[in-house]
Nucleic acid binder design. Sequence first.
DNA 1: CTGAAAGCGCTTACAG
DNA 2: CTGAAAGCGCTTACAG
Lengths: 380, 380
Amino acid sequence: MQKKNLHALMHTSTHKRSYCANFLVQQAAHRGAEKRGNMEDRRKITIADVARAAGVSNSAVSYALNGRPGVSPETRDKILQTAHNLGWQPNRAAQSLSAAKSRSIGLILDGDPSLAAVEPYFMRLIAGVTQECEKNNYSLVLRRASTAQAEVPVIEQWIASGAVDGMILTNVEAHDARFSVLVDHPDFPVVALADPSMVPHLPTLFSDDVQACSMVLEHLTQLGHKSIAHISGPENLSHTQIREKALKNMCEQQGIQYTSIATDYTSEGGTAATLELLTRYERPTAIIYDNDVMALAGLVALRKNGFSIPRDMSLVSWDDSVLCSTVSPALTSMYRDVVNAGERVTQMLLALIDGHEAPSQKEKPYTLMVRSSTVTPHHA
Amino acid sequence: MQKKNLHALMHTSTHKRSYCANFLVQQAAHRGAEKRGNMEDRRKITIADVARAAGVSNSAVSYALNGRPGVSPETRDKILQTAHNLGWQPNRAAQSLSAAKSRSIGLILDGDPSLAAVEPYFMRLIAGVTQECEKNNYSLVLRRASTAQAEVPVIEQWIASGAVDGMILTNVEAHDARFSVLVDHPDFPVVALADPSMVPHLPTLFSDDVQACSMVLEHLTQLGHKSIAHISGPENLSHTQIREKALKNMCEQQGIQYTSIATDYTSEGGTAATLELLTRYERPTAIIYDNDVMALAGLVALRKNGFSIPRDMSLVSWDDSVLCSTVSPALTSMYRDVVNAGERVTQMLLALIDGHEAPSQKEKPYTLMVRSSTVTPHHA
DNA sequence: CTGAAAGCGCTTACAG
DNA sequence: CTGAAAGCGCTTACAG
């Protein structure tokens, strides 16, 4: 039925490109062949098929395919050969059921992952995670929830259903709603991307945001800045809290004026917070933005209000995307290798799944990319 | 036991620091307690446990939980209640094995998904796909390959292992290496995100790039442009070919000078192509970029060469990210609802998996976001 | 070194 | 309306 459709479709499109034409002929031939043995073809090839073809028992096949002792070298070769010839692949569900392992790990996208400001982060993280998964023949199972709270049932399901062997926890919040499920199941492997102080009961891969803060501050104070503002992400995120506290403490210690506004990582939030800063009596001479989208928005907003950048205001962006290096003036920013973090957090999780220890680790340090948006302020 | 932990946790969390310390102590206590009943605790709850607790047979439980006839209303209620009390969740592997369905769909990230230029596209697509998956209780399995060619073994494995019930095909190329595997398995559900003319044997969800081209051209010609350049993505992508052909044809028909340079979607590529354009004898008065990263790079490069934008050159970006609306001048760009495309392509795939027809569909039309980067050229 | 058999947790005809 | 039993495809003690 389907096949007839395809046929018709193909024949009518033959004059489009001879490439298609050829393709279609092969298609047709192939389909013709298929019609015959269809019912039989449908069945997937199992270990029993291989056993029959090789003239051995199922268990011999299993041993051979899993590289275990119990078969003679010759038998093993013969089995491997016929398995390959038949195009056998282990049935995932059967393996999982038998082993009580899914060979999958889970990641839940929370908040709005299509929010421009968080897209690059998640995508890079996923790139790293999948990269490492491929190496170990694991799959990444991706699900989605609107809030940390909404992740709870997904996690419960994962644990009870055995759909994944472990998971990666991102966007940790203070008093995170997910903690209690995880505490109830201390043997479910989990690695968090968060500061250990915020997640004392789980191994974490953490970025050294405190050190990053001190790098930024050192850069700015060396240029002569005495009044600095911080336009941050959402207050309840552990990331935000750590940066906020670190910057505040350091500024106090060094006698630097410090002010901050928490916002939401969006372009609009960045614009609004920047404008709010300008209305304050004492204006800062430098602004640190918690991401690049807000930094760009700030740059544009400042210009519209007659500021020349970097002359009248120095800007630092916390995330370093192409945007920072492409825009003019290029933005000084903190670079963090998120792809690598994805790889490492996956390594840790797989170690945990394999029953090893996975002590918390530090990410590669941030790099401060000094570009054109930070200069010595007027009065200095 | 667990509850006590949580309780304690909450009570102590009144002041920040002691929260951590206390938590650890309880953790330790918890683990200690675990050592005893470990063996029993480890076992997941199965249908047999529920049956025993409810005093019925396994099959009765199965019927009740799956909402099938075969159990009396009272029995059903009792079963559902005890299942819930015990925290039963179906074991995924067992269900998959029995049903020969994984309730998962696959997506392979190819090329370099952490390439700045493709990050937003993939992330939005994934956001849409997972969104729709959640609604239908499906999972998204994500894997990674460096090229279309490298996807082939992954696809073969998926098909033979039953790891996923179907897949979404992206970044289709001319003479795509993946076609032959898919042709060999015509019953494996696949939906492509590509123009039907490039994938005659698969249902597709396609954007109307031809219409989009005509919108852009109409906008530019109405402003008075007579010479237009196109800085495109990689030549072998079906997307690129379609846009290229459409723009070329339309320009010819309307007596507009047309030139194009294929590049790689990167910022560097955009810069280089833009500069190359400037060296040509006849300069265009407007440039269409195939993505926003290149458009921004072009804007900056033009400025560095003394061009005032939009006065000396009109710019159009094909993708509309925050970048386009935030930068100054804001870039005129083509908006495409990729999240929605992700949802719809998933709907199509799930329909196919359920044995329904899934005829090719058109995406929501592009919207031309007219902003400040396109104006009437000097000489007009 | 090899084979017959039980088990993983679910579903589903098939008898009662 | 309900229960006993076989089966999905693999793994793994356990006999030979």
